[in-house]
Design a protein around this nucleic acid. Structure first.
Length: 244
DNA sequence: AACTCCTCCAACCGCCAATTT
DNA sequence: GAAATTGGCGGTTGGAGGAGT
């Protein structure tokens, strides 16, 4: 017989769920999502937990508007890699693939509309009928660099005086320096305590991660620790159910 | 003030790849 | 090596809230 509790929850996450998830990720690392989903008592799928963590709860996430530099980087990397959002995201510390994807969609649509108006102010039919798939930024008469990999923007300088050469240098550096180390449980239970990593960050600093993790507003923070007892009892329950 | 449109963003879905059994 | 399971990615959707009319 099926209990109501067994039904998988969907939709927006509650703060309590967030707290639980954060703490269980601290305990078990950010890899074993199905396991975490079960042990935590969250009636969520592993996928859902992972998504929530990656897109919202991860301590290294930046909030707020994209900077001009980031915007330029997104444009350029999209030109290079196309819709490889996760790959692009790895080059923008603190930004998620979802965020970049959303940004791209919104802005390509906007640009497409502007472009459409500029090209044919009187015409309602458009060459950009699928704006998200046919990026509109390319200039008239040029082959769209979004399809070809780009005409090469090296030498251009953005608002911050950051040239594309600099950007590519950064990218190359970070590619060299980024060591994607497979995580294991033992890694997560290192002497540093129940750690979790920021594998997607170009030059992650654990201190930085911690710092930003707990920069959440105080109310939320206090709630989180207020719930610690609840968490512990759940954890004990989870452990017991695992060990028998 | 009420309505519509637009933007932003969180979350789900389906597919595929990687890993485990 | 095959099958099953899990994780990751890209596409898409729907709701909230702000801006414009």
């Amino acid at each position: 017989m099926k209990m109501v509790q067994d039904e998988v929850r969907k939709g927006p996450w509650t703060e309590q769920e967030d707290v639980l998830l954060v703490n269980f990720v601290h305990l078990f690392g950010d890899r074993r999502w199905d396991f975490i989903a079960k042990v935590s008592g969250l009636n969520r799928t592993g996928k859902s937990c992972r998504l929530r963590w990656v897109n919202y709860l991860h301590p290294c996430l930046k909030r707020g508007k994209m900077t001009p530099h980031e915007e330029r980087l997104v444009l350029e990397l999209h030109a290079k890699w196309g819709n490889r959002w996760s790959r692009i995201a790895r080059k923008l510390p603190g930004r998620t693939d979802n965020e970049i994807k959303n940004y791209w969609r919104t802005h390509t649509r906007k640009k497409a509309q502007e472009k459409e108006q500029a090209i044919s102010p009187s015409s309602s039919s458009s060459n950009f009928h699928s704006s998200a798939d046919s990026p509109p930024f390319s200039d008239e008469g040029k082959v769209s660099f979004y399809d070809t990999g780009g005409p090469g923007m090296a030498g251009l300088e953005d608002e911050n005086g950051y040239s594309m050469d600099d950007i590519w240098k950064d990218i190359d550096m970070s590619e060299e320096n980024t060591v994607v180390k497979p995580l294991s449980l033992s890694d997560n239970y290192s002497e540093q305590g129940c750690n979790f990593s920021c594998p997607s960050m170009a030059s992650p600093s654990w201190e930085y991660c911690w710092d930003s993790l707990w920069k959440m507003d105080e109310e939320r923070e206090s709630k989180m620790f207020f719930n610690t007892n609840q968490l512990v009892s759940r954890y004990e329950y989870g452990k017991a159910s695992l060990t028998g």
